[in-house]
Amino acid sequence: MDTNTLDPEKKLPEVNPRLPRSSTTPDEPWLRYVNIDIIAYVLSYTLFHPWTSWVLVLCLRAQHTPWHHTEIQVAMAWAFAMSTVSFFNVMSDRIAFGAPREVDLAEEVIVITGGVEGLGGLLAETYGMRNANVAVLDTKRVGEDEAEEKGVLYYECDVGDAEQVEAVAKEIVEDLGPPTILINNAGIVRPKPILDSTAAEVEQTFRTNTLSHFNTLRTFLPHMLREGRGTIVTVSSVLGHLGAANLSSYTASKAALHALHQSLRAELAQNPEARDIKTILVSPGQMSTNMFAGVETPSSFFAPVVRPVDVAKEILRLVEKGESGDVVLPLYSSWISVLGLLPAGMKALVRRWSGVDTAIAKAGLVQAGRAVEKSG
């Protein structure tokens, strides 16, 4: 044994430890993270939740509050009201979308377009970590090592080209089996005024954002019909309802997706073989991806920027519950249709206050005039 190791007078080398930072984000007041969506979420599980409402009634009875007292009568009336609203919401979804289908990820084959980055990439990696059968269609290339690490099969494909989609579909069927879940997420945006947009640029935007959905539906829907089950997710945008200056081709292509998805639902409802094919329409507001990097919302309280992970969680929830439905985040997005009911002058004031027609220019994206492949 080395006696030097036992020498108490021998000094050990000094080490300057680097402790991990508790947070990589700058310190901000906690109010900065409070918005109307968080408040609505908390209320939905407390004041406006039937179970919580009846717990309040039980608490009053536990305190021996007589039935004829005002407080317990108000509490019971509120509990009945929340129960009635909840019941009608469940019945409304059942009438609109039918009963949910059974979903076992081990028996599903998931196809995601535009699934290398952003929202699509998040969905692909999540399913890959859960050992699901995932095929991603994207123009971006992914190395074999990265694909193996993520547990996802990547196919280089321009989904705006019908022939490429059909060729890749044959590979997917051979590699994984018949696709049963289709998530149409691919898209691009060209922030240019109408007069500065070329015919080729507009055509490319519609091919990627809109025609790609026709290509994938015509290719993969027959497999779902033969399997007798499936889920189709259409990723659109709240801008499809609004339109916006310097985003004409993008907003028009997204507006077309709303009509396409409603037509798809109507056709599936008339097909007896499509009883267990579910549809999900995703219409998020601004997400924190590179698609609209630098664009600011008019109010972080009333119009917060949505995190892709929050949208992904809602998509995953509906897909795995085997339900149809709509994913609309943040809260203001679910009320956009009300804007069409307002008088013209009031609509103009709302648009001016929201800055929807000036946000792209203020962010400096118009001058760039570049195409941004959708990653969220």
Rank of each mutant, 00 (worst) to 15 (best):
D2H: 07
D7R: 09
P8W: 01
P13T: 09
N16Q: 14
R21F: 11
R21H: 10
S22P: 02
S23W: 03
V34Q: 00
I36Y: 06
I39M: 09
V42A: 12
P50F: 11
V55G: 07
V57Q: 08
L60F: 13
A62W: 14
Q63M: 15
T65S: 11
T65G: 08
T70C: 05
M76R: 15
F87K: 09
F88A: 04
N89D: 15
M91Q: 14
S92C: 08
D93R: 12
D93V: 07
A96C: 11
G98A: 00
A99H: 11
D104R: 12
D104S: 12
L105W: 04
A106G: 13
I110L: 02
V111K: 01
I112Q: 00
T113Q: 03
V116T: 04
L119K: 07
L122G: 03
L122N: 01
G128K: 07
M129A: 14
N131L: 09
N133I: 08
A135S: 02
A135Y: 01
L137A: 01
L137E: 05
V142D: 06
E144W: 10
A147N: 04
K150T: 06
V152I: 08
L153N: 11
A167N: 12
K170D: 10
L176D: 02
T180D: 02
V189A: 08
R190K: 10
K192Q: 08
I194D: 05
I194S: 08
L195S: 15
D196L: 05
T198C: 02
T198H: 01
Q204P: 05
Q204W: 04
R207H: 05
N209Y: 07
L217V: 06
R218I: 03
R218G: 09
R218D: 09
T219F: 00
P222H: 10
H223K: 03
M224A: 05
L225E: 00
T231W: 00
I232N: 01
V238I: 12
L242W: 04
L242E: 07
A244R: 08
N246D: 12
L247G: 04
L247Q: 02
A255W: 01
L257R: 03
L257H: 03
H258Y: 14
A259C: 13
L260G: 08
H261F: 06
H261K: 08
H261L: 05
Q262N: 13
Q262C: 13
R265N: 15
E267R: 14
Q270G: 06
N271R: 10
E273S: 14
D276Y: 10
D276I: 06
I277R: 05
I280R: 11
M291A: 09
M291W: 03
G294S: 03
F302S: 02
I315H: 05
R317L: 07
R317C: 10
V319A: 06
E323V: 11
D326F: 09
P330Q: 02
Y332G: 02
M346D: 14
M346H: 13
L349P: 09
L349K: 15
L349Q: 15
L349N: 14
T358D: 15
I360T: 15
Q367H: 15
R370V: 14
A371Q: 12
V372E: 11
